[in-house]
Design a protein around this nucleic acid. Sequence first.
DNA 1: CGCTCGTCAAGAGCACTGCTCTCTTTTCTG
DNA 2: CAGAAAAGAGAGCAGTGCTCTTGACGAGCG
Lengths: 222, 222
Amino acid sequence: MSAAKTARERVRAEMVREITDIARTHLAREGAAGLSLRAIAREMGMASSAIHRYFPTKDDLLTALIIDGYNALGEAAEASQHDQDPTARWLALCHAVRDFALDRPHEYALLYGSPVPGYRAPADTVAPALRATLVCGRIIADADPAPPDSTPPPALLGPDVEALRQVMPGVSDVAVARAVTAWTALFGAVSFELFGQFDNTITHRREFFDHGMRSLARYLGL
Amino acid sequence: MSAAKTARERVRAEMVREITDIARTHLAREGAAGLSLRAIAREMGMASSAIHRYFPTKDDLLTALIIDGYNALGEAAEASQHDQDPTARWLALCHAVRDFALDRPHEYALLYGSPVPGYRAPADTVAPALRATLVCGRIIADADPAPPDSTPPPALLGPDVEALRQVMPGVSDVAVARAVTAWTALFGAVSFELFGQFDNTITHRREFFDHGMRSLARYLGL
DNA sequence: CGCTCGTCAAGAGCACTGCTCTCTTTTCTG
DNA sequence: CAGAAAAGAGAGCAGTGCTCTTGACGAGCG
C-alpha cells in the first residue's frame, strides 16, 4: 500500500521530506522561533506561497518536527536498553535523554521547553511522546521495586495511579508515584542544564547528572 | 537620591513602568513570542519608533520582564517561609514556586522554559535569579540533614560542591548534591505540569505534586 | 484520442513585525 | 535666556505568515 503510489504522491512525499529536513537544519541553527517558511522555500528555490501546499500553516510544520523529535528521542531511549540490571537500565535511559538534549538542544526545547505560543499540540503527538516514557515504565515494571522509607500516596490519587499502572503493571502505589517524580526530576535536571540554569555554578555537568540519577535510582528502590 | 530627581527622569521612570506593565499584560495573554513593541506603543498612543528610546531593543524589554519575574518569584519564595519545621518550609517553598507558575504561566515559561532564541541573558539577571535558590539553600543549611542511604559524590565534584556550599554552609557533600537534585526535580515537576506533559495522565495535580515533594523531603533527609 | 478536472507553482498583495534615520518639539541647565 | 540634551513623530527598509488569483501540467475518463 505504501509502495505503488502514483508518481504525484511519490514526489509529494519527497517534497514533504525535503521541507522537514531543511526545517530541521534551520531549527538546529536558530531555534524554533527562527523558523521561516519563506526561508525554507527560498532555500528550495520555490515561491514562498507554494510551500503552503505542503504545510498549510507554520504550526503544521512544527507539528511534524515535534512528532519526529519525539520519535527520535523514543528510539534513542529504546536503543539504550541493552542491559539487565535495573539501575544500569535507568542510568542508560537518563543519559540517553541527556545526550539527545545536548545533541539537539532546539529539538529538545521544542518538546520539553515552553510550548510555542498559540500552538496546541494535536492528538497525533501523544503516541510518539509516550515512547520514552514507556521505556521508563518498563524498567520500573521489570524491577518491581519497593522504595525505601516511603508513605503511600493519599487515597484520592487512586485513579491516577491506576491509569499510570497500565504502563507498569503489578507495581505498588508508592513505586508508581516515585517513578513519576523521578521521571520529572530527570527532565528537570536536563532542562536546567540545557537552559542555562547551571551556568556559573556547576562545571562537571555530566558527573553531577550521573550522580544525581544514581541517587534517584536508590530513591526509586532499584 | 531617588526622590528629588528632575521632572524628566520622573516621567521617564513612569514611562518605563507603564511600558513594562502593558508588556506584562500582553505577555500574560499571548506569551513571549506574542510580545510586540509596536503593539505596546500603539496601546500607549505613541509612535512605534518612540518606544525604542526606553527599550532600545526587544531583548532589553525581555530582560526587564525576566528580572521582574525572578524578583516576584523570589519574593513569593521568601514570603512562604513562616514556619520552623524544615519539611514544612520545603513544602511551602515548593508550593510557592508551583503557585507562581500556575498564576503567571508565561512569566514562568520566560524564566524556566526554553530560552528565547538569540537572547543571551545579561549579568544583571543572575542575582534576582538566585533569590528563590537561596531560600532553598537556607532550608537545607538550617536543617543540616543527613540524607538516608546515600553515597558521597565522586571526588571531581569537589569544587562544584564547594561553591554550592557557600549557599548552605556546613552541609555535607551528599546533602548538597541531593539538594541540587531535589531543586531540579521541583522545577521538573512544575514544568511538566505547566507545559502539558501531564495532560490525559494526572488529574489531581496539586495532590500529586504535594506527595512528590513530600517524598523528596525524605530524600533530602529533612 | 481528446478533454476535463484536480494538483501545483507563481506572483501580487495584506497586515504585521523590529529597527533605523531624520527632523521637529520639548525640557533641562549653565 | 541661549544652547544642549532628551523625547517624539514619521517615513522607510527588510523581513514575516498567509491569502487570492492566475496560469501550467498531468492523470484519468468518456
